[in-house]
């Protein structure tokens, strides 16, 4: 389904309104076309709440993955280790009202309501590549706002070197949390300069509509140059700290999932190659795509890691 593109895929320009509208029509017709094959609960075919949201900078001009593929294939261990089962299981999650607790090395700590955060941070659409550590990938039109812009409003102090995110812990609803596949709650983190990078996105929607629960509603992170597990879902806590956070997958297997987790075809996972990726939605006869360093965002982010041995800091 995806057309192979040259490596400089990013367009730093804001996409023309006409192009935007045309693409919307394309997504719409593609969604309608596949509606017959879809499970009824997978899609609200009509782009809804956020269809008027403007395209933001760094949005790539790439053909996007079908919405039902993105919504029907999620790694959300809080619900299930099965990528299809999480869709139905996540339905029970109540995403409103939603609070985010800000703490740590910050001048304005406190519990903030999500709607207030959204009022302060105008939404935009960003089409990003998404690369999972399991060697599959997709292209998703996220709706969100720059993470750095939001973090700045809480005024982190000079001691804040890292930012740590925590997912909701509620085993009554998040049934996957009843077994100890991972150390709950899920924790992820970024170095402050990574968090401030304009590519890092706080996401609340996709495909012109709200995020489906299984995709991390109501608030998730998207860090397009890192493996998908960095892009934590259903965030309830953000803590600024002096020390590097211990992330969930690092705790689970420190030799396999590092803190940085930058997409890198040159550094294989200890148990599999990372040089290629299966593009979701492609036919069974389509060969895998060659994985790009930093998932194709090297021009923007490589300087964050200059002088670092990326095979050591994987």
């Amino acid at each position: 389904m995806l057309i192979k593109t040259k490596s400089d895929v990013l367009s730093s320009e804001i996409t023309d309104r006409a192009v935007f509208e045309a693409r919307r029509e394309f997504i719409k017709s593609a969604t309608v076309l596949s509606a017959g094959l879809m499970m009824p609960d997978l899609g609200q075919a009509e782009p809804g709440k956020y269809k008027e949201v403007p395209i933001g900078p760094y949005s790539a001009t790439l053909p996007v993955t079908a919405r039902e593929d993105v919504a029907g294939y999620t790694n959300y261990y809080e619900f299930s280790t099965n990528k299809q089962d999480s869709t139905a299981l996540a339905k029970g999650l109540k995403t409103s009202p939603w609070n985010v607790e800000i703490s740590g090395e910050v001048e304005k700590p406190g519990v903030y309501q999500l709607e207030d955060i959204l009022k302060d941070n105008p939404l935009q659409e960003r089409i990003y590549r998404f690369r999972c550590v399991e060697a599959w990938s997709m292209v998703v039109p996220w709706i969100g706002f720059p993470l750095g812009e939001m973090l700045k409003r809480f005024k982190p102090t000079s001691k804040a070197r890292f930012v740590e995110f925590t997912t909701l812990f509620n085993p009554d609803v998040m049934v996957g949390q009843r077994s100890s596949v991972l150390a709950w709650p899920y924790v992820e983190g970024l170095r402050m300069d990574e968090a401030m990078h304009p590519l890092a996105l706080m996401v609340t929607g996709m495909y012109g509509d709200e995020l489906p629960n299984q995709n991390g509603a109501p608030l998730r992170l998207i860090v397009p140059w890192k493996y998908g597990f960095k892009s934590i879902k259903a965030i309830v806590k953000i803590r600024f700290s002096e020390t590097m956070p211990e992330t969930a997958w690092y705790k689970s297997a420190p030799s396999e999932y590092g803190f940085y987790a930058n997409v890198n075809p040159e550094v294989p996972h200890p148990r599999w190659s990372q040089s290629r990726e299966r593009v979701l939605g492609s036919s069974i006869f389509t060969p895998k795509r060659t994985t790009e360093k930093f998932n194709g965002y090297g021009e923007q982010v490589a300087s964050l890691y200059s002088g670092m041995d990326l095979s050591k800091y994987f």
Binding site: R278, S283, I284
Partner: peptide, 8 residues
Amino acid sequence: QLGANPIE
């Protein structure tokens, strides 16, 4: 009808 990742 094999879903998002038919080969898998």
